[in-house]
Simulated assay, not measured.
Amino acid sequence: MFQKLKKTTYIPTGKPVLIWDGTCGFCKFWVTRWKLATGDAVYYTTFQESAQNFPDIPLKEFKKASRLIDLTGTIYSGPDSAYKLYEFVPSKDYPFHRWYKKYSAFRWLSDHAYNFIAKNRPVVFKLVKILFGNNPTNLKLYWLLYIFCILLFVFMLFQ
């Protein structure tokens, strides 16, 4: 499981920074989505490019989970980094970060789901592409079609 780090003394300037694994296709897919949503509000970089700028964060922790570092030096780790990103989406109010902080069951489920995904990135990435398509800038909701086909099949079985 990834470690939840609290603070860094190497505070970003200008805007918060999300640090992610540049070799991970799953990560790149979702970072592309988040960039579209947050615009210029967050700086996105890989740990391969920027880990040396945060020497108080162990490299092994960058390899385990994404890290969002805000302008106070607070570090949001794993699913909390993703949820915190939604606070930078203009004109939308997503509750995920509040839920993560407030509800221990939501936090536990998020942390364990994130850990599972992190350990199985290639397989989960294939599943993401099956459900949403290959282009993160233009999601296709294929999963709706799959559910419809399954329901149609079940309906036909019981006729």
Results as ranks from 00 to 15, higher is better:
1 M>R: 00
59 L>H: 06
135 N>A: 06
84 K>H: 13
57 I>K: 03
62 F>R: 02
130 I>F: 13
34 W>K: 00
151 L>Y: 11
46 T>R: 07
67 R>A: 03
130 I>T: 10
62 F>A: 02
25 G>I: 00
102 K>E: 09
50 S>W: 12
39 G>E: 10
137 T>G: 00
136 P>K: 01
85 L>R: 02
91 S>C: 06
89 V>Y: 13
151 L>I: 14
97 H>T: 04
92 K>V: 11
60 K>N: 06
93 D>V: 09
93 D>Y: 11
26 F>I: 12
121 R>V: 12
59 L>C: 00
136 P>T: 04
49 E>Q: 14
96 F>K: 02
134 N>E: 15
44 Y>G: 02
159 Q>F: 11
40 D>Y: 12
1 M>C: 01
123 V>C: 06
141 L>A: 09
8 T>D: 10
116 F>C: 03
124 V>S: 08
8 T>I: 08
123 V>E: 06
34 W>E: 00
124 V>N: 09
93 D>R: 04
105 A>V: 07
91 S>Y: 13
99 W>Y: 14
93 D>I: 08
15 K>A: 06
137 T>K: 15
151 L>C: 13
71 L>H: 12
119 K>E: 15
81 S>W: 03
52 Q>H: 11
95 P>A: 07
146 Y>M: 11
92 K>A: 15
5 L>I: 12
121 R>T: 14
51 A>T: 01
23 T>K: 14
7 K>L: 13
112 H>E: 14
156 M>D: 00
40 D>G: 05
156 M>G: 01
118 A>T: 05
75 I>V: 15
49 E>D: 15
26 F>T: 01
23 T>H: 14
141 L>K: 07
10 Y>V: 01
87 E>H: 13
80 D>Y: 00
103 Y>S: 05
67 R>V: 05
107 R>N: 08
121 R>G: 03
108 W>Q: 06
22 G>A: 09
33 R>A: 02
119 K>L: 15
141 L>H: 14
42 V>C: 06
35 K>G: 05
36 L>G: 03
145 L>I: 06
97 H>K: 04
144 L>V: 11
73 G>A: 11
83 Y>Q: 00
39 G>Q: 12
74 T>H: 12
134 N>S: 10
133 G>N: 02
31 V>A: 03
125 F>Q: 09
32 T>H: 02
10 Y>C: 09
135 N>Q: 07
84 K>C: 05
65 A>D: 04
24 C>K: 08
42 V>P: 00
143 W>L: 11
85 L>W: 05
80 D>E: 15
27 C>M: 05
7 K>V: 13
41 A>M: 08
21 D>P: 04
159 Q>I: 00
96 F>A: 01
9 T>I: 11
